[in-house]
Every structure is written in structure tokens, then in C-alpha cells.
Design a protein around this nucleic acid. Sequence first.
DNA 1: ACCTGAACACCGTTCAAGT
DNA 2: ACCTGAACACCGTTCAAGT
Lengths: 224, 224
Amino acid sequence: MTDRPDIPRSRRERPAKPALSREGIVAAAVAVLRAEGLPKVTMRRLAQELDTGPASLYVYVRNTAELHAAVLDELLGTIGPVPAEGTWRERLERVLTAYTAMLFEHPSLARSALTARPSGPHYLTLIETLLTLLDEGGVPPAQAAWGVDMLLQQATATAAEHSADEATQEDWDTLTRALHEVSDQTHPHLAALADTLLSGAPPVRQSWGFQALITGIERTAVPD
Amino acid sequence: MTDRPDIPRSRRERPAKPALSREGIVAAAVAVLRAEGLPKVTMRRLAQELDTGPASLYVYVRNTAELHAAVLDELLGTIGPVPAEGTWRERLERVLTAYTAMLFEHPSLARSALTARPSGPHYLTLIETLLTLLDEGGVPPAQAAWGVDMLLQQATATAAEHSADEATQEDWDTLTRALHEVSDQTHPHLAALADTLLSGAPPVRQSWGFQALITGIERTAVPD
DNA sequence: ACCTGAACACCGTTCAAGT
DNA sequence: ACCTGAACACCGTTCAAGT
């Protein structure tokens, strides 16, 4: 058992600590996200993972929000292209559904995407795809541009809401109860529509929402 | 200077500590929100404000998210009725704009509203108002019910996004730069529409968004 | 039942000091 | 320039013990 005095012991014990880099940090963040969810993707936790102190990460990442945005862009890259069959409307809905499905798996990421808009390469490509499809459908460019924003916002907000944690379930129960207890004297429409307000499986409502939005975007001119 | 031994000194030093109650906690939370914003509305801070320990609050409030939802419902009560003039569309937009304006003053509240749906009395009344206006416009009830959800979601998401803190501004700058650097070879639509994507003052875009959404809701039938 | 002190198990971010 | 230890200033929530 020979010691090699030219390399300190600590350097040989583990697979060699890789140099820090933005990519490395984001990759570690994605790994932690996949394994334990976004709430665990913290500066401190990542520092631990990368065998350093939290302060070191601030050389590469401005803050936690920016880190989360980078993680989202990374995941956006996993969506992949959707089949080219069908009408532009069908393909548009398919892209949006793929986007939403990805966010449904990481609702907390959807939550953070609403605040810290991503601006990475995969996000830009997604926008390009949506613009292309709207153009194919003959939607005037200005309407398409503003519309893309709404479509992504709706998809993101829906995913953020449907985070299926316990707390959210309780919220929903509370709302259900409140809706059914409402007086038809003071809230006639609410009383009449209580069940409809809560009806529809998420995919069905989501699909209806996309169709309604697309129709509205198609038919509403942008002011000069 | 006579001591009154039947009342402990500590009880006389301050205006008399009021008994804890859900209403008292929510009222204190609203006060802190108004003075310092939602991030300061924490269990610990409220406990301090109410001269007790954080653990005591858990008798009346399930957790921080529920507290924030209660605060939102309270603020919803301050919106007040909107003038009855104009078409149903105009009045609908006015209600939604009032809702959004309130949330714009408390963007962090909008953020939390996307996750923890409120179910308080003021929220129910807001839904009733929206349903009434859609009914007046002849929108079929089922479409109105699902549509209300989308309208509120859009309003809330927009407010959440436009939180004007520093970080958000930086995000926006980053996105602007990214959009203008994009290659028109790989992203032709994006390159052509970069300016349009970013154009429009928030109130103008918001208004366009509501109109597009209302039109879509009007014209899209709910599946059986 | 209601209330509490204390503890557990964490956070983000900054800064002075080192290499 | 890059990296770091240590510190600052906080969090939410639970639990055993008290009234």
C-alpha cells in the first residue's frame, strides 16, 4: 500500500471532484428534481451534492429562481417533436398537451415558471413551433404572437393548479363544500351550476380550454 | 403608586392582549400585507404581532397557504361593485379588470392564489357576478361555468407574472435579448415577430386577452 | 380545549478571506 | 477570477407540557 504524496489523499478518495460550472449545477439540479422534486432543489442541497458550499454556486447562478428557470428549460428539451399528422389545430393541441403533461409531473416547476419566465433555447424553440402552427392556420401574425403567450400561460397555470399534493386536495374539498352550501337566494347562478363548475376530467377541460382559446385568438384582432 | 395584585403586572402594561381568533389572525395578516407585502406574512411574524408563539396560530389556521388564501378572500371584499352601464361584455371586462388591478398591487398574493384556490364568501360572490354577466350575454350555462375558471385563471396568472420586482425585470431583459439574438434561419417566425411578442402595454394586452377569451368561451361548446 | 416554549430541520444570500 | 467557511437573518411545523 503505497501512498502517492503528490496527490493529496482527499483527492483520491472519490471519483475526482469535477470543476464547478453552470451546466454541472443545472445537471445536478435536474437530477435532484427527478429524484425528490423541486422543493429539494435548493442552493444548499445542490452545494452538498456538488461537494462545496452554497456560496460557490452564486458564481454561476444569480439566485434560486434563475436556477429553477434553467431547470425548466432543460426539461423543455425532453418534450420532443409531435407527429405531423392531422390539422394544424390538432397538432397545436398536441404540442400544448405535451408541454402540460411534462409540467404535470413537476407542478412546483409550473408554479415557478409562472413567475420566472424561462428564456432558454428550448423555450424559444417551443414558441417557434407554436407560431409556425398558428401561421399555418392562417392566424394573423400579431394575433399569433400575443396568443402564444396566452396559450403557454394557460397551460402553465393549469399544471400549477393541479399539483396533486395533499394541501391542494383539501382546498378542493373546501371549495366543493362551499359551492354546495351556497344559497340559491343570494347566488342563484352559482347554486344552479355548482356541479358543472366542478365537472369534467382535467384532460377534457384542458382540451376545451385550448380550443376556446385558439378560437378566440383566431377571431380577435389586435388593436393598432 | 399602588400595585393591583389581582391583575398581574404584565397584563396591565399593554392595551390588553386580545384573545386569539381566526378573524384576529387574518386581520393581522392583512395589516402586515398592506404594510410590508406577503413575504412578511409568516406564521412567526404574525405570532410576534399578536404577542404569542407561532405554535398558537395552528389552532386556528391549518398552514401558511390557508392563511394566504384567507387574506386573498378578505381583499376580494374590497373590490366592490362595478358600474352597471354598458354592454355585458364591457361590464364583464370591468369586473375582471378590477380583480386584476387588486392583484397587481399584491403580485405575491396572485402567485399564491394560483396554487391555493380561495373558497371564501367574497370569492363565491365574484364567481356569481361573472356567471350572471355571461348568462346575460346568452352564453350557454356549461360554457359559462368552465369559462369563469379560465377568465379568473388568466387574470390571476397575468397579475402573478407582472410582479414588478427586480428579479422579474431581469428575466424580462434576458428574454428580450434572447429574442433579438435568435437566428432567422432556425427560428424564422420568432425572428419576424420578436417585437410583436414583446409589444403592447399590459392593460392593452390584458384587455385583448379578455376579449379573445370571452369570444372563445362564447363559441366553443362543451363536450357531452 | 386552548395555548405555549422549545426544538427540529431546514432556508437564501452576503461577505471577508483565501487561493 | 474563482472558491469558500462562517455568519446573518430568517423560515414552517411539531410536540410535550402546561392551564
